[in-house]
Design a binder for these strands. Structure first.
Lengths: 192, 192
DNA sequence: ATAAGTATTTGATAAATGTCAAATAAAATG
DNA sequence: CATTTTATTTGACATTTATCAAATACTTAT
């Protein structure tokens, strides 16, 4: 039916193996979506009723602060789930944008359809729980980076633990993600 | 059976209403625990197999960094769930301590018992999912504070959004939570 | 390949935060 | 209540990071 589902199904099975019946039930609700570079998966102010699994490409999540500076909050690559958490969970207007940084292919599932699947299949609800737990752990890790490291140490953290960030994401976006200014990031890169 | 369960049950029902059967099933697995000030609910290095609901009192979560400074990562008061997320979710050694800041009463449930309840009752699994989602949203909020605000703005955020933190938590603990030094926090308080 | 636009680097300086030491204030203990 | 311990504030100074401006490097589109 839908091509390129292998990665998607593998991603799911690795978080929580599902029965063939559950898989069968999910498939009709999936759709592939393609975004050109700079297109938006999610728009600030809109209710985000879609959860994306990234097949290929790369996205950033960001919002505009009081000074209309862009603050980048999250980056996602192949085989990651991209979602405006607050908006998707609570079905309220999104505080953030999610934008393709490269041409990007995703598989989407609608909030309403996912709720139906949660109702119908306990094991899909479990998958949801485990996914939320994993996401939470990742968030805590980044929080501790911001809480404890200097500008230089933050950059070194990326080098060691998120090398793909440095390869694929412009520095101007990485800076606000790291909570520092572009010029500082540039200088810190020069050192050592 | 167990006194002081009202708050606990109310907390649960407000996240996700449970049937009487589920409630009945949970009760036998709950136990009340009391901690004197400075006692530990969770110890760094141990596998944390207990999830605490705080009935009264207040706790901090922290770890020791390379310089043996204490980094405070989380504070919890009445009607909050206190848990070393990474350790509890994955049943690996905890990266953090959780310590009572005041004499504290909690209701605990064991990891193994909770898994049984998850298996048995879909709606309890849903409760778990929703709780993880809520926790995640809170974590993201704090992350953005650390990413975007100056020392003074961080303190003002606490004043406005977490006044109980300032009332009940010593500044020396709040400082590392805010990612700044004690002296800076003290100075920033004086201004304005 | 060239021009226009965008991204990154560099320099000079200002502002914010950290460090170390000491003073004061507050809390805990006998 | 007096004493000891712990927490917070203050001061002088060092270091880090931000700001503003400009130069250079890199991309993109023609």
């Amino acid at each position: 039916m839908l091509p390129a589902l292998e990665n998607y199904l593998q991603f799911i099975q690795q978080i929580h193996p599902l029965s063939p019946e559950s898989i069968e039930a999910i498939l009709p609700f999936l759709a592939q979506r393609n975004f050109y570079k700079k297109e938006f998966l999610v728009r600030q102010g809109n209710i985000s009723d879609e959860l994306h699994f990234i097949l290929s490409g790369c996205v950033r999540e960001y919002f505009e602060d009081a000074n209309t500076d862009e603050i980048n909050t999250w980056f996602g690559f192949e085989n990651a789930v991209a979602v405006s958490t607050h908006s998707f969970f609570s079905q309220k207007p999104s505080l953030t944008n999610i934008q393709a940084l490269e041409d990007t292919e995703t598989i989407v599932i609608k909030h309403g359809d996912l709720q139906k699947l949660f109702n119908q299949f306990h094991e899909i609800e479990r998958l949801g729980r485990l996914l939320a737990e994993q996401y939470l752990i990742q968030m805590e890790e980044i929080k501790i980076i911001l809480q404890t490291l200097s500008a230089k140490q933050r950059y070194e953290y990326l080098l060691q633990h998120k090398p793909e960030f440095i390869k694929r994401i412009p520095l101007k976006y990485l800076a606000s993600f790291l909570g520092i200014k572009l010029e500082t990031l540039s200088r810190v890169r020069g050192q050592k």
